[in-house]
Write a protein that binds this DNA or RNA. Structure first.
Ligand code: SF4
Ligand code: SF4
Lengths: 151, 151
DNA sequence: TGAAAATAAGATAAACGGGTCTCAAAATAA
DNA sequence: TTATTTTGAGACCCGTTTATCTTATTTTCA
């Protein structure tokens, strides 16, 4: 898997919060999100704690508490979430797993992989939560996995 | 990690065999490969067994035995190795891990990911063992990880 | 103040990938 | 034939990821 499960959950939750942020300024409870996104509550909690300590979210305990995006959704890119949870590995690691990959002694697939890797990075970096989340509504896309499979 | 460790080992061993195949027609012992590539012998054995049962290698027991590419190195692409070990997942799975990814109800990053995914597939498919292995020699590239690291 | 609601934190367990180990089976060569 | 060399096959171990569970801690509100 390209992204860890934790990372995809983090992205889905972030998109969910970005969509909510346009409607209210309140905190969103993790329990509610975990139900709507079909993600284990405790697992999601741990993931969002990572995003909180990474400075992407702010959290508040107690009734009316929950979690919210720290910055405006337009200012948060998908790469922020990915890096906070999975680290930079995907964008820096060698495709063939050789330690110390570099330009001087590159492996046979270096050029192609470096190209794809960069494209992946720029794609994630170029997508902010606001625009991505708005597409969910306008194009009737899905966020949760409660739909039937096809292909 | 994009490719599993087993898969990268399989690719490295295949490239090694492709390089050897141009010099002799003998079987190559897994023990020798495991030493030269710095890969655990038993683990490499298991991986190459997968390639054998996938029809990519042929094997022979006993002294002078070992393993060899079944077809000519020019006719084996990297995608053959990847699919035999890791399956088609990398080229078909959803980036966000949602089951049943598809065109009808795609997730918000579908278009970009599908594009990158396709590029990845065509890159692997377009690289055959012969050409890739020959670059190892002609450009003094590396196959094993016994070299010092440099970013 | 006290009950309830929510995150924080950490222990625990299951599943998986990576890796090791042992023994069997086959082929060679003495 | 017998010893040796090799792959084949499977059990087993270990660390990480995924997931669950339990126990604080903080906040709100009656
Ligand atoms: S493609 Fe480049 S970064 Fe990846 S393993 Fe090869 S040399 Fe290293
Ligand atoms: S990008 Fe396409 S294939 Fe990947 S999860 Fe989204 S809808 Fe599915």
């Amino acid at each position: 898997m390209v992204l860890s499960k934790a990372c995809t959950y983090g992205i889905l939750a972030s998109l969910y919060m970005a969509r909510e942020a346009t409607r209210s300024k309140d905190y969103i409870s993790i329990g509610r999100m975990s139900k709507e996104l079909n993600i284990s509550f405790h697992f999601l909690t741990k993931i969002l704690q990572q995003l909180t300590s990474a400075g992407i979210l702010i959290s508040m305990k107690g009734p009316k508490g929950g979690v919210a995006l720290k910055r405006k959704p337009e200012e948060i890119s998908l790469v922020d979430i990915v890096v906070a949870i999975d680290g930079m590995g995907l964008f820096t690691e060698c495709l063939l797993g050789l330690p110390g990959c570099g330009e001087e002694k590159p492996c046979p697939v270096h050029d192609d992989w470096a190209n794809i890797r960069a494209k992946l990075f720029h794609t994630f970096r170029g997508k902010n939560l606001a625009e991505t989340a708005s597409r969910i509504d306008s194009m009737n896309l899905r966020l949760s996995s409660e739909f039937p499979m096809n292909i």
